[in-house]
């Protein structure tokens, strides 16, 4: 159990990388990048976990009565999610333009430059 969550994060990251490398569709590739990014969420939350702890929110928990998980990595994960969403939006906008200009979303067919 000790390192399993970390290994899960590594596995998700590698699965995303494999998808990126073998992708035949740019939209699929953007999805794979999101999979890679979700590995970082798992890793960050796993690093911050504490046994038998609750969420670091004290609106209904008396401070000091229970251990709480690490709030710093949770905030980092939040940042991560936001940046991931914006990157996905920007990449999808690029895919829309690529598909319009070149008539294809297969990265292998986009290899030659056209002026």
């Amino acid at each position: 159990m000790g390192v399993l969550p970390y290994l899960v994060a590594a596995w998700i990251f590698l699965a995303g990388c494999y998808g990126l490398a073998t992708s035949r569709n740019l939209i699929h590739a953007v999805g794979c990048l999101s999979v890679c990014q979700s590995a970082t969420y798992v890793l960050l939350l796993a690093v911050g976990y504490r046994d038998d702890a609750t969420a670091p929110v004290f609106s209904d928990v008396k401070p000091g009565s229970r251990p709480v998980v690490d709030p710093v990595v949770q905030a980092l994960t939040l940042t991560d999610v936001v940046v991931g969403a914006t990157v996905t939006a920007l990449l999808l906008a690029l895919v829309v333009q690529v598909s319009k200009r070149h008539g294809t979303v297969d990265p292998d067919e986009l290899s030659e430059l056209r002026g």
Binding site: M1, G2, V3, L4, P5, Y6, L7, A10, F13, L14, A46, V47, G48, Y49, R50, D51, P56, P63, P67, V68, V69, D70, P71, V72, V73
Partner: peptide, 23 residues
């Protein structure tokens, strides 16, 4: 990555210096 994971502090450990200070 596996080598790095094996070297990380154990999952669910009690030592979170930054978390404690943030709280």
């Amino acid at each position: 990555l596996v080598a790095a994971c094996l070297d990380l502090p154990a999952f669910g450990g009690a030592r979170h210096p930054y978390g404690d200070r943030a709280v």
